[in-house]
């Protein structure tokens, strides 16, 4: 791809994103309730954690504010991910009612086109909550990160976005084969995400391996948090947390390839 086509693609992306935001603002009440709703629901989870920790003092050696940090780090990258990829889960709807074909009769890349169709502003609620929570935790824990730790933090946010985005892309790709995708989101993604709100060491060894080496959720928040909060793990090196971005990049490109395979299968089979 040449430089000028990148520029054109970026401009086009912003045009479509702006249109998507305007479309969501057509429903003004829904627009604000969506943002508020997400922020409130995460604040609710944080309160649950507080209540729990109030009686236990600590969980697997994690204090309340450390847990909040772990949780907020996951919500932060999930928030960014929702903005770009959340609508991928409902690809099945587009396929079933035939509107997916429109992405194939236009002179732009279908993945890019589908991605640019929605820019989910509801995610600002997540961002609002998570930035506030990370800031509070940073102050409460008396953290004073050197420069490289800010690098790890940034890599965790971008890597986490790519990992979770990759899984959403993967889930949507299932629709090319089965014409269903949304339900897989609720069965796979939703429970996995709730699980990641707590330290991984709580869970059986097998699960820890799966979310580290197969669906790399551990790189979203747990492993970077270990490194950023100087916490040990019995078998994993704490420096693994530095590789979130690289893991995210590789994982996302695999998921993208699978999506394109699905698209080819759609083109030869129809719906």
């Amino acid at each position: 791809m040449s430089f000028s086509s990148w520029v054109r693609g970026t401009r086009l992306y912003f045009h479509m994103v702006a249109a998507s935001i305007r479309a969501q603002m057509q429903y003004r009440y829904g627009f604000f309730m969506n943002i508020l709703g997400w922020a409130m629901s995460y604040a609710g989870t944080a309160v649950t954690m507080w209540v729990m920790l109030y009686s236990f003092q600590s969980l697997e050696g994690w204090s309340f504010w450390q847990l909040i940090f772990l949780f907020a780090l996951a919500v932060l990258s999930w928030g960014v991910c929702v903005i770009f990829f959340f609508h991928f889960r409902s690809l099945d709807q587009y396929i079933l009612n035939g509107t997916f074909d429109r992405f194939l009769v236009r002179p732009i890349h279908p993945f890019f086109h589908f991605m640019a169709m929605k820019f989910d502003v509801g995610a600002f609620g997540q961002l609002l909550f998570s930035i506030a929570a990370v800031t509070l935790a940073y102050i409460q824990l008396g953290l004073d990160w050197p420069f490289w730790k800010w690098g790890v933090f940034t890599s965790a946010v971008i890597g986490g976005t790519l990992i979770q985005g990759g899984i959403l892309v993967l889930i949507s790709a299932i629709a090319f084969w089965t014409t269903r995708s949304e339900r897989f989101y609720w069965v796979v993604m939703f429970p996995a995400k709730s699980m990641m709100n707590y330290p991984l060491s709580l869970y059986p060894r097998a699960i820890q391996w799966v979310v580290t080496f197969i669906l790399p959720f551990a790189f979203v928040n747990y492993l970077p948090a270990l490194l950023l909060l100087d916490k040990p793990h019995p078998s994993f090196s704490s420096y693994w947390g530095a590789f979130s971005f690289a893991v995210g990049l590789v994982f996302f490109s695999i998921c993208y390839q699978i999506w394109m395979m699905g698209l080819n299968r759609y083109k030869s089979a129809g719906s």
Binding site: R11, L12, H15, M16, A19, R22, A23, Q24, Q26, Y27, N97, G98, T99, D101, R102, V105, R106, P107, I108
Partner: peptide, 20 residues
């Protein structure tokens, strides 16, 4: 099946297609 952007004023679909 419409090819237009469902929630937007009609004119905006034309402007987007101009970009596409």
């Amino acid at each position: 099946r419409s090819q237009l952007w469902w929630d937007l004023p009609t004119i905006e679909s034309f402007e987007l297609l101009k970009q596409v």
